[in-house]
């Protein structure tokens, strides 16, 4: 895909929109000999929730992990191309990967709270980054994060209970609170609801909608209804390429590419 298609998406931008938060240009990823991502370019905006859809193994998660350099942690993984956050190359030597990950937070497929108390789970990020000046400050950050993730009312009386004792949906919202607590600019979500039941999923989706605008949100999902519900922009990946990227409404009602159409109508995937 294609730079011009990005431009198409770009041209639709109206005057009130902010410049793209992240831009990716011609990104390639190799796992050893396997060419997992083949020249993907894309802009990610603060104003939208962006959904990545596509069949399993299409590279949507891999590309997502490029955006906060989590792929660095995988042996034999090589990333090429340019990815920028606010116009700064995230692979530049001056970019500290640890700070990048604080600014580009991540929520994983399976809820993975630390086996510590709820409070400690949320407070961990602010602590290591020194975001709170005092204990009261930290308490405040924890409360705000839990409120924003819609978990506060459920856990406020048992903040010292273990994070792993919560239900699956609560755990995932705790993970979102944990990501929010370091005040990131972008939140990457890798199929955040795939391990949850429908009610918990609905809560997560509501939450994503509430968080929109404050953070640039990118969500990987294999559930097309979910993509349609929560996102404003959708990117369709197939076999490591970005096939189509545009407004969610357009993608689902009037896809430009036949592969996109086949996928969303359930021909494969």
């Amino acid at each position: 895909m294609s730079v011009d298609m990005v431009n198409v998406a770009g041209r639709e931008a109206d005057a009130g929109r902010r410049p793209p938060k992240m831009t990716a240009r011609d990104v390639h990823v190799w796992y050893g000999e396997t060419h997992a991502i083949k020249g993907v370019s894309m802009d990610i905006s603060m104003d939208d929730v962006t959904a990545f859809i596509g069949p399993s193994g299409c590279g949507k998660s891999t590309f997502l992990r490029c955006l906060n350099r989590m792929n660095d942690t995988i042996d034999g993984c090589r990333v090429e191309g340019r990815i920028e956050l606010d116009g700064h190359d995230i692979h530049a030597p001056s970019m500290d990967v640890v700070q990048l990950r604080a600014r580009v937070g991540m929520v994983f497929q399976k809820p993975n709270p630390f086996p510590k108390s709820i409070y400690e789970n949320v407070a961990y990020g602010p602590r290591i980054h020194g975001l709170a000046r005092s204990r009261a400050d930290l308490d405040n950050v924890v409360e705000q994060s839990l409120r924003r993730s819609g978990l506060w009312d459920e856990v406020k009386d048992r903040l010292s209970a273990s994070g792993t004792a919560l239900s699956g949906g609560q755990q995932q919202r705790l993970c979102i609170a944990r990501a929010i607590a370091v005040d990131p600019e972008v939140i990457l979500m890798d199929e955040p609801a795939s391990a949850l039941d429908p009610i918990a999923t609905a809560k997560i989706e509501e939450l994503i909608d509430e968080l929109r605008g404050r953070y640039a949100i990118v969500i990987v999902t294999h559930n097309m209804q979910q993509a349609a519900r929560v996102s404003q922009k959708t990117a369709f990946f197939h076999l490591g390429s970005l096939v189509e990227y545009g407004n969610t409404r357009d993608i689902f009602t009037n896809p430009r590419e036949v592969r996109t159409k086949d996928y969303i109508t359930g021909r494969y995937g």
Partner: peptide, 22 residues
């Protein structure tokens, strides 16, 4: 489990912090 490492890396802990904190 690796998910713990991912979680800590995801909020911006450095690899050394991931090991010694978690």
């Amino acid at each position: 489990p690796p998910s713990i490492r991912d979680a800590a890396l995801g909020v911006g802990a450095s690899p050394v912090q991931v090991v010694f904190h978690h």
